[in-house]
Design a protein around this nucleic acid. Structure first.
Lengths: 153, 153
DNA sequence: TTCCTTGCAAACGATTTGCATTGGA
DNA sequence: TCCAATGCAAATCGTTTGCAAGGAA
């Protein structure tokens, strides 16, 4: 009963002769259930510390190398990872400056076209070959607003 | 002969009763000359190791706390800082996936208006209070393209 | 002179690595 | 079976902190 996405992951791993072990399976499943990027520490806790941190870091790196995961660099000094766009669909992030939570958001196709256009015009004369973009919105999330944790922002 | 921007920095520091010391002056000047965000280590080297790393980190933190600098979280596991928008003007980044260099780019006002509009429509129904955004373009810079360092991207 | 700031070294947290052992295809 | 992957502990790297000495207002 592996999900469709998991089967794509297995195929990608198989074609690179890399094994889909128990630890890697748990990790991919945890990221499938997540609604935003997760750090090694987050995953360690979410997997109830059954998978050692060093293995999590190693898997995170091999899966990123294969393009299955992508790192997300945010505040807080720890890297967060999520399943790549080709598995989960293209999306952007809503980042709370107060609690650090990162949520996924999807924009209408029309809006994405506008962004693609901006990427093109911004790099047109720079000799820079764009391959990707990130559009992230910072602010205060609903929970923090309710708790009054948005002082000084 | 302090630049206009430096005078604004001095005023901001003064109103918070925080001293503009030699180390802080050197740091602000290095960031003024930079064409993109710089990490503590970058600045340490650019200042010829005359200012100890611990002082650089401390100054980076106090200046960020005053809104003079803003942190930029990128690949490479080290935080980079730059002078805030109110000092340097609003801009975005061109990030090379190959060598990690980050360059500033400025978009036409009309384009910024479009981006502001996207921020509004993306957060309209989420109970999220947006305060800021980042729009960053990833790819391969001219130098790396010339050297053929864009394999596998 | 009075505190804020510095400089050094030690402490810290996140991530990586060496090496013997285990387990998947 | 055979080599990739794991688990543990030690090593590394970026960053923070305690404390005594120095420097700006």
């Amino acid at each position: 009963m592996a999900s469709q996405i998991e089967q794509q992951v297995m195929r990608r791993l198989g074609s690179a002769e890399i094994r889909y072990t128990k630890g890697r399976r748990l990790l991919v499943q945890a990221l499938l259930e997540a609604d935003g990027p997760r750090s090694a520490g987050d995953l360690y806790r979410e997997l109830k510390e059954e998978v050692p941190l060093s293995s999590i870091y190693r898997s995170l790196n091999t899966l990123s190398g294969l393009g299955i995961l992508v790192p997300h660099h945010g505040p807080g000094g720890n890297n967060r990872f999520e399943l790549s766009d080709w598995l989960m669909g293209h999306h952007h992030h809503l980042i709370c400056k107060s609690c650090g939570t990162v949520d996924d958001i999807r924009l209408p196709g029309q809006t994405e076209s506008i962004i693609e256009g901006l990427v093109g015009s911004a790099t047109a004369d720079k000799g820079f070959k764009a391959s990707d973009h990130s559009f992230e919105i910072y602010g205060t999330c609903g929970d923090c607003l309710a708790e009054g944790r948005n002082e000084g922002l």
